[in-house]
């Protein structure tokens, strides 16, 4: 095991920036949820890297809980998208301006 921990952190930074770009620049609701998943994964990777660095398992337990929360978030988010599609015939978030005055 000769890969420095900092290289794992650089990869996590890169993935997080790509995911944040997806969330900020895409208009389809599904792509926005995918970007959120990518950001959560980047955070998880950083947690596992730090856990390995310190030689403890607490970071891995955290990642387990983050995975469960991500699963819950996706279930509710996709249900919201289905409900929005039934109402609007579109999941383009630019069209969701019902609450805009």
């Amino acid at each position: 095991m000769t890969v420095p921990t900092s290289h794992f952190l650089l990869l996590a930074t890169c993935l997080f920036a790509i995911g944040a770009g997806g969330v900020l620049l895409r208009r389809s609701g599904i792509s926005i949820l995918l970007g959120i998943e990518l950001m959560l994964n980047a955070g998880n990777l950083a947690l596992v890297a730090f856990s390995h660095q310190h030689g403890t398992l607490e970071g891995q337990i955290f990642v387990f809980f983050v995975m469960a929360v991500a699963a819950a978030e996706v279930a509710v988010g996709l249900a919201l998208l289905v409900a929005i599609f039934r109402k609007n015939q579109s999941i383009d978030v630019d069209r969701l301006n019902l609450l805009r005055w």
Binding site: M1, T2, S6, H7, L10, T13, Q53, G55, L57
Partner: peptide
């Protein structure tokens, strides 16, 4: 990350 330098993990014997 780069400013802190490359740091290697100590072999700890903790298995996940």
């Amino acid at each position: 990350v780069v400013a802190t330098g490359t740091f290697l993990a100590q072999p700890s014997g903790v298995s996940g």
